[in-house]
């Protein structure tokens, strides 16, 4: 089993620190979502892991080895960094053949991955005739070429159509089920929520969170209950008596919608039923990854606006 281990990784470009003493591990058997706003250092971290950029300090290893020590790296790690990387004048098949040859991957495998990526029928067309979604599929085919136990994908759903997004989601989940290590960067929250088991969140090159996705959401977003009633006043009264704060939402003529913060359906249901408030609808609102993420970045922004000693960040107690 191969994990990705990033240890105290730092990368400076001149005066800017793109990656700041980053330490985390990506475990096999699950999809790890790599989140952060643009410029947070996700792509830089991936390039550092792949030995393409040199770290200012720190290490990144795969199964304990730096990427550059692999003899035939495509058999160990598959990566998609940039969908535009294939030369436009080459056919998709020739692009993959050249890659396969360098790592002594047998040629039939090229046709296999093209088939898997849904590009078999256009494999002999020049890449410049491809849409962004097709290029993205070609990049994913290249990542799968060596049947690697570790897969790194940078924004793989960019440009994919709805069908493609479902395909990549199922593919990544399938790879994780097979016991592979899958690290997928994204800045799309709903998208990431649909495939990630675990999250690594970056902000300004620093680690903001490294935990299971469910835990991340539950720790940051309080549960809410949505209630629809014909008697809003009665509802508010009964809830207020029990210390709940009900806020009126948008009504659509068919009853009034209310949102109860910090509440669970079981409690609210029992209370309203005992008080005889007529209920048309009662539903739990699960926190979304987006809400949790925004909560995290808001607190991170607050932190960076203050001095480090006043407000320590979750992982980095002091500025270097």
């Amino acid at each position: 089993m191969t994990s990705i281990d990033v240890q105290d990784l730092t990368k400076e470009y001149g005066a800017t620190r793109a990656v700041d003493r980053l330490t985390f591990s990506v475990a096999p058997g699950r999809v790890t979502g790599f989140l952060g706003p643009n410029g947070a250092g996700k792509s830089t971290t991936m390039r550092l892991v792949l030995g393409l950029d040199r770290p200012t300090s720190g290490t990144a290893t795969l199964g304990g080895r730096p990427y550059t020590t692999f003899d035939e790296p495509l058999r160990h790690v598959g990566s998609l960094l940039d969908a535009q990387a294939a030369h436009g004048s080459r056919t998709a098949r020739d692009h993959l053949r050249a890659l396969a040859a360098s790592n002594r991957i047998p040629e039939p495998r090229v046709d296999e991955v093209l088939e898997e990526a849904g590009l078999a029928s256009v494999a002999r067309r020049r890449v410049k005739t491809y849409s962004l979604g097709m290029r993205q599929r070609l990049g994913i085919a290249a990542a799968l070429l060596g049947d690697p136990p570790v897969v790194l994908l940078d924004e793989p759903s960019n440009g994919l159509d709805p069908e493609g997004i479902i395909w990549i989601r199922e593919l990544m989940r399938g790879l994780a089920r097979e016991g592979r290590t899958v690290l997928v960067s994204s800045h799309l929250m709903n998208e990431t929520a649909s495939f990630a088991d675990h999250l690594v969140v970056l902000g300004r090159g620093r680690l903001l969170a490294d935990m299971p996705m469910r835990e991340f959401i539950h720790a940051r977003v309080q549960p809410r209950v949505r209630v629809r009633t014909t008697d809003g006043a009665a509802l508010r009264d009964v809830l207020a008596r029990h210390g709940y704060d009900a806020v009126e939402g948008e009504g659509d003529g068919d009853g009034e919608r209310w949102i109860v913060h910090h509440a669970r359906v079981a409690d609210i249901g029992r209370l309203t039923s005992a008080a005889g408030v007529p209920i048309l609808e009662l539903a739990a609102e699960e926190g979304t990854l987006e809400q949790a993420y925004l909560d995290l970045t808001a607190s991170a922004a607050e932190f960076s606006a203050q001095s480090p000693s006043q407000c320590p960040s979750p992982t980095q107690p002091q500025e270097a």
Partner: peptide, 9 residues
Amino acid sequence: RVSLAAVPH
């Protein structure tokens, strides 16, 4: 990057 990911040496 694709070339050097395949041949890191």
